[in-house]
Design a binder for these strands. Sequence first.
RNA 1: GAGGGUGUAGCUCAUCUGGUUAGAGCGCCAGGUUGUGGCCCUGGAGGUAGUGGGUUCGAUCCCCAUCACUCUCCCCA
Length: 440
Amino acid sequence: MSQPLSSSSPRQTLQSPRGTHDILPDQIAEWRFVEETFRGVCARYNFGEMHTPLFEHTELFARTAGESSDVLVTKQMYSFVAPDEQSYTLRAEGTAPVVRAYLQHHLEQQGPVAKLFYIVPVFRYEAPQAGRYRQHHQCGIEVLGASGPEADAETLALASDFLRALGIEPALHLNSLGTPQSRSAYIRRLREHLEPQRETLSEDSQKRLDINPLRVFDSKDERDKAALRDAPHLLDHIREHDPESSEHFARLCSYLDALNIACEVDHNLVRGFDYYTRTAFEFVSDKLGAQGTVLGGGRYDGLVEELGGPPTPGIGFGSGIERLVLERQATGHEAPATPPLIAFLVTMGDEARAAGVPLLRQLREAGIRCDSDFVGRSVKAQMREANRQAARYTLLLGSDELAQGTIALKDMEASTQETLPRDAAVTRLQAAQHDNSPSR
RNA sequence: GAGGGUGUAGCUCAUCUGGUUAGAGCGCCAGGUUGUGGCCCUGGAGGUAGUGGGUUCGAUCCCCAUCACUCUCCCCA
């Protein structure tokens, strides 16, 4: 296809940047459906929608990504220096900006718990792949101020309802990460277990062993899996040494049971950063290849402090809209049809064409969804267009009708046509529009 | 960042081991009706074969590079 120009040929067309995508009119219904479904579920759970800026001070994401992490900070962020010589970064994840706003606007003063949701684009410089893009869109929620497992249950109930409303049922994977204290004790144990087998690990995992041994669990390499086969499980360690987290997990499980939400404990489900605590979960599809996580989240009781706020527990999730759409397509779902075009105006001759301009406006003012030809095509072509647009009715305006102050109204399905006064036609179309409007 | 696959009209694809003006279906436009759609018929527009090099008498077809897409590792949504 056409190529991005390399400076000299101004006539070549540009493409959207790698890993970004346009969403065209024929796909927008599906997107809207996902977004509106999410808004609807959030409304029922009494979450408040919010927007945050597309870019933030780089420091915000640098802090949540952790100084030690080579993941986000080094290469994966879209950072730029503005004319004020400060470094800014395009939203690299959903949670940090919300927490920043929570602190900045003192939402904690409005009550003990803040329940927030958002639908936003997220930018990361990654190698594009199926279900992984450089700009993707996330819908997510954050519950700030509640530490008990009820908040975890609320979060998972909302997530589950959302996915169910979309008609998809990915598997819920659940784990507990304990607290930074119990986790670091566990990491020591894990390191002791893996260190002797160092040579048998994959190259990646040998590095992980030094930086964050927990991450070895992420690996799909058979050698790593073998090394982990009889490694101690984080959850077992927590059960033995972290009674509070253990209790939290047990109660959450019983809530999920009461909510009829099936889940499987996944000992390989881990997170890299210190501010993650206890509950971690992912809804994973088996139809999406390597990027199967359709919704992921967990508890982050240490994050608000990390961002300079008072100790505040938090839990939330993010869900990739692109992946939700892929999953729905993979399971044969289609967005509800958009409301039909009620009327298409066909004009004959210059005079009628001119008269059509105000007539169209009158129809729109009457609430009628209608359209017309804009390139002066033949009547036949205009009729074809009306048919292509699946218009319920065609309005025909020519010199005869013009002279009589009437208009011809053709029912495209029944193929019947009658000539009637303009106002009568408008009234008729209004009724048709009403019948075809989605009942609310 | 590493590795594999792909790249021909708007879309989906042909073009048989490199050989004259690169084809089809769908879509689009127009005609078949002085003012009328869906079906049908006819005609038309639209491609320097992603791009740039190379090999060759000759390349859509072979080689190299580059770009894009795609899949996997990695990571996450």
